[in-house]
Amino acid sequence: MADPRLLAALLADAVAGSRTIAVGSNSPIPAAAALLAQRRRPETTISILGSSRHNPFPDGGRELFDFAAQGRLDAFFLGGGQIDGAGNVNLLQAGGIRFPGSYGSAYLMPLVPNIVLFREEHSRRVLVPRVEFISAAGRPRRLVTGRAVFGGGEDGFVLLSAHPGETEESIRAATGFAFATAPGFGPSPTPPPEELAWLRGPIADELAQPYPRFAQILRGSHA
């Protein structure tokens, strides 16, 4: 398991410069990333689904989606039971197994300029040549996994960096789709001590309401 604090920092890098960032269902690490991005750049507005404190949409559940359709939402995180080399995500079903459902992905992927895909499991089971069902089609800017960071582009994903203990070869062996390697490929950057302290302290505290279990993990000293 990669350190969730490293993953949160890499996801925060992926939304650097965004003025508005939203986080959807079942997304504790992206929620930590949004809070970190806001600490790095305090004028950032963030929306965390399920958080009573980080909800800038008092007009109900539809408001975020209307905001996105107008082009006002800069960044959103999406997961995937399956993710393919074209950037499609499948949140519905694969191999006779039911996933929770497509949530807002079908709508937000084509409408939000900076879509960041995140899935901790990096395996050929998850990163496939072609998803079985396209919940959402679009052009993700970045894909972050428990092993590596990819950039999104016209011709598919480009490997940008690998986490501690991984190499280009180990990433290739664990990935079911073809990808290029960036000229500047190297190790994924680790967050500075100050940011690790934020993640263990105030950010974990803020996540205790929507994600009580994850907040405890974030506070922990492992890894």
């Binding site: 359709a69 992905s105 709508y107 084509p110 089609a137």
Partner: peptide, 21 residues
């Protein structure tokens, strides 16, 4: 639900294009 509260039969919506839904 918004279409129903407006008393209209449907609403148009952006996005979704490209989804197998």
């Amino acid at each position: 639900f918004q279409a129903a509260e407006k008393g209209v039969p449907f609403l148009p919506l952006r996005g979704i294009l490209g989804s197998d839904l």
